[in-house]
C-alpha cells in the first residue's frame, strides 16, 4: 500500500491549499495517504502545523523545483 491520492493545489494562495487538503482529508478513510502539491511557501509550514494539531501523520515534505510535495496519512 503506497498509493497516494494527489491533490493539485498549485498556483493557489494561502489558505487555499490547506483547505483543499482538509476537504480531501474529511472524505478519506483512516490510513489513506494524500499528496498535496503547492507552490505556496506558507502552505509548507502551515500543513505540518495543522497535521500536528489535528493528529494525523506527516510523512514527508519536499520541494521539487517550485512545487512543494506534502505527503500525509489520515490517522483518525
Amino acid at each position: 500500500m503506497s498509493e497516494f491520492k494527489t491533490i493539485d493545489a498549485r498556483n493557489t494562495f494561502c489558505p487555499g491549499p490547506l483547505m483543499e487538503l482538509i476537504t480531501y482529508m474529511k472524505q478519506a478513510e483512516v490510513g489513506d495517504m494524500l499528496e498535496l502539491l503547492s507552490t505556496d511557501n506558507g502552505t509548507a509550514s502551515d500543513v505540518p502545523e495543522w497535521i500536528d494539531k489535528v493528529g494525523h501523520e506527516m510523512i514527508s515534505s519536499e520541494k521539487v523545483g517550485d512545487v512543494w510535495h506534502l505527503k500525509v496519512r489520515k490517522l483518525k
Binding site: N11, T12, F13, P15, G16
Partner: peptide, 18 residues
C-alpha cells in the same frame, strides 16, 4: 490581480462546512 487567491465567500463557506 491574482487568480489563485481563494474568494472570501468561499472561505467562509468552507469554515461552515468543514
Amino acid at each position: 490581480s491574482e487568480a489563485g487567491v481563494p474568494p472570501f465567500k468561499q472561505l467562509f463557506k468552507s469554515a461552515a462546512e468543514l
